[in-house]
Amino acid sequence: MGTFIQNQILGMLWLKTLTGKMLTAFGLDIESRIGGSVHFFLYDVIKITLLLFVLIFIISYIQSFFPPERSKKILSRCKGFPARVIAALLGTVTSFCSCSSIPLFMGFTTAGLPLGVTFSFLISSPMVDFASLILLTSIFGWKIAIAYVVLGLVVAIAGGTIIEHLHMEDQIEMFLTPVKCCCSCSKAKTTQKQRLVSSMHSVTDTLKKVFPYILLSVAVGAVIHNWIPENWIINTLGVKNPLGVILAVFAGIPMYSDIFGCISISESLLAKGALLGVVLSFMMAVTTLSLPSLIMLKKVIKTKLLVVFVSICVTGIILVGYFFNVFQTLFLN
């Protein structure tokens, strides 16, 4: 039953078979490079779009029960390590877009919540969420998905703990200016109908913003899958390069995307021989440390704290990457 859910419901292998038969019926050889690229592109675009539609609707509906004011109340009830754990967990039910995480981070900070708590939330929110769990399960399986989320939470909690013990409250800008969020960050709705309508709006808004990145990511994935020599991937990002994780992290930082926008690239790299830790660390870097989000964050924290934040995230992601590399056989068997 578990295999059926992973392969047919989440992985949508039925869709892969269907699109393959359709292309074959039109006279395209899906075993050729061109045909294989078209098949990969069509299948992945439809699959990821369907998953995005369902997941964003569910996430947005859950978010309607956790408006900023309620989140502040939840976090203010705890102190110390438990508060950082709750903050990291709370990040998993927020939007996967970092542009919405930063305004929430600002609100938590101005409300007087400890810096470690707010940073645990800030790290967790874009790095690990419900969408990550489901999407990674559909591609890599439940063991990898759960480990990815758990280790992401560990990085978030550890990062918040380090920042809190560094006592860097003076590194927060005194006058925080509102940062416009590109997501649908409306207040919680009070009726069931309003929640559903708001969730649908979130789906359409997110799809408009993310879909171009999905197309680009899948196109790159199709090229990697059908045109890039396997030996080149293995030599660069596989077992022959012990620095592959570090390379992947710094390659991911300049990109502006989310997990939906980089999943196809990661899937293709793994299929071509890249190590699991390299692929997952690349995804973490893209979702957590994109340049646009760092530029936005620089508006509300000073350079010293920003450097500490980036250093903690980079170090944590690299350690997670090497963890998956070491135990790759355990997760992929």
Rank of each mutant, 00 (worst) to 15 (best):
M255T: 05
I253W: 09
K299G: 13
L196E: 07
R84F: 08
L13N: 09
I56D: 13
W142L: 15
A156K: 00
S199H: 04
E69L: 13
G238Q: 12
A158Q: 07
I246K: 00
I253H: 10
Q192R: 09
V300E: 08
C181W: 13
F324P: 01
P229G: 00
L115S: 11
S132W: 01
K73G: 03
Q328A: 08
L237P: 13
S125P: 01
K240R: 10
M255W: 00
C181K: 02
D29W: 02
N333F: 04
L51C: 04
L216G: 01
L15I: 09
V220G: 11
I233Y: 01
G159D: 07
H165G: 06
I265Q: 10
H201C: 12
A87T: 08
I234F: 15
I144V: 13
V150M: 12
F108K: 01
T236F: 08
A158R: 08
S198Y: 10
G316D: 09
C181L: 08
A188C: 11
F40N: 03
M1V: 08
A83Y: 07
S125N: 05
P229R: 09
M1Q: 10
Q328C: 01
V117Y: 14
Y256P: 00
S257R: 00
T329L: 04
W142V: 08
W232Y: 08
G152C: 03
H165R: 14
L176T: 07
L270E: 09
S37D: 12
T206F: 01
L216V: 02
L297G: 02
E31R: 03
S71Y: 12
A188S: 15
A219L: 08
G277D: 12
I62P: 06
I123V: 06
R70M: 07
Q63H: 15
T92R: 07
S199Q: 11
F260Y: 00
M200K: 10
S60G: 14
I246H: 10
L275I: 00
V326K: 14
G27M: 14
C182I: 01
V179N: 15
G112I: 00
R195F: 07
S311Q: 01
I295D: 09
T109V: 07
S138R: 01
A248Y: 04
I157S: 13
N226K: 00
C313A: 15
A156T: 05
A111S: 12
I123R: 03
T204Q: 10
P114A: 09
T190L: 07
G27L: 07
S186L: 12
L135H: 05
